[in-house]
Simulated assay, not measured.
Amino acid sequence: MAGEVSLDALPYFDQGYEEPGVREEAAALVDEETRRYRPTRNYLEYLPAVPEDAFLSPVLRAEYDRMMSRLPMELLSMKRYELPPPPAGQKNDLKAWADSINNSSAQLQHQATRIMNLEVMARFGANAYRVHNEFLQRMVEQEQRQLQSLRMQIQEINWQRKSEQTKAGAEIQQLESTWFALVSKNFEIERAIAELEGQIREATLYEEMQKRQQQEEGQEQEVQVEEEKQQDLEQEQSLEQEHEQTQEEIEEQEEEEQQGSEQRVEEQEQSDVQTNSLTMSDAVE
C-alpha cells in the first residue's frame, strides 16, 4: 500500500554510521534510486480529492477568481461616508432632498453607534480583554501541558524503541554468531562429506579394478582351462587316432596272419594231399 515504509535498520543499535565513506555511499544509493524513479504525472491520485472550496465564502471565492484572472482589486468605496447634496438638476425635487436627509441621518446614527461602542469598550473593554487574555493563557497552558504530554509520549516511544532495538540487536548478534557457527559446521560437514565421497570413490574404483582384475584373471583362467581342455581334447583325439591306427594295424596284422595261416593250412593240405597221393601211388605200384 502506498505510504507504508518498511525499515530494516536499528539506528539505536547499528554502528558505523560516522565512519568515512558511509554517508557518501548512502547518498550515492539515494541518487541511484532517484535516477531510476519515474514518478507519474499525478502521484497522489490514490488519495481522495481535496475539497478546496469547502471553507470558502462567496466573497472569498469571488476574490480567488479575481486573483486567478489577474484582475486589479477594486478600491475601497467611500461613497457611504459622503453627504452629497441633490444634483444640480434636482435642487427643487423633494424626493432627492429626502434621500439626502435619510443618508445624513444614517451617517449620523452610524457615528453615534461608533461613539457608543467606544464608550462601552472604554467601560467594559479592559475586563473583556482581561478575560480574553486569561482564556488565551489557559489555552496556552493547556497546549503546553498537551505538548509536554506529547513530548513525554515521544520520549517513552523512543525509550521503548531503543529498548526493543537493543534487545533485537543483541538477539540478532546471537543469531548471527549461531549462523556463523552453523555455517562453519556445515562447511566442515561438507568437507568431511567430500572427503568421504572421495574415499568412497577411491574404494569403489579400487573394487572395480579388483573386480576387473579378477574378471580378467578369471577370463585368463577360463581361457587357459579352455586351452587345456582343447589340448586334452586334441590329445584324446590324437590318442584315439593313434589307437585307431594301432587297431587297424593290429587288425591288418591279424588279417595277414589269418590269411598266412589259412594259406599255410591250404599249403599243408595241399602238401598232405600230394603226400597222400604219392603214398597211394606208391602203394599202387
Rank of each mutant, 00 (worst) to 15 (best):
S6Y: 08
F13H: 03
F13E: 10
P20Y: 00
E33V: 08
T34K: 08
L47H: 07
V50C: 03
A54R: 13
F55H: 11
L56E: 15
M73F: 14
M73V: 15
E74I: 06
M78V: 03
R80D: 14
E82H: 04
P87T: 04
N102E: 11
S105K: 15
L108Q: 11
Q111W: 11
T113H: 14
N117V: 11
A122N: 08
F124C: 02
A126I: 04
A126R: 07
V131K: 00
F135H: 11
M139L: 14
Q142Y: 10
L147K: 07
N158S: 14
W159C: 04
L175Y: 01
T178E: 15
T178G: 06
V183F: 05
V183M: 05
L196F: 03
L196G: 02
E197N: 08
G198Q: 10
A203H: 05
L205C: 00
Y206W: 08
Y206I: 03
E216R: 02
E217P: 00
Q221H: 10
V223R: 15
Q230L: 15
E234Y: 05
E236I: 06
L239A: 09
E240K: 14
E240M: 08
Q247R: 15
Q247L: 14
E249I: 09
E251F: 05
E252V: 07
E257M: 06
S261D: 13
E262R: 10
Q268W: 01
E269L: 11
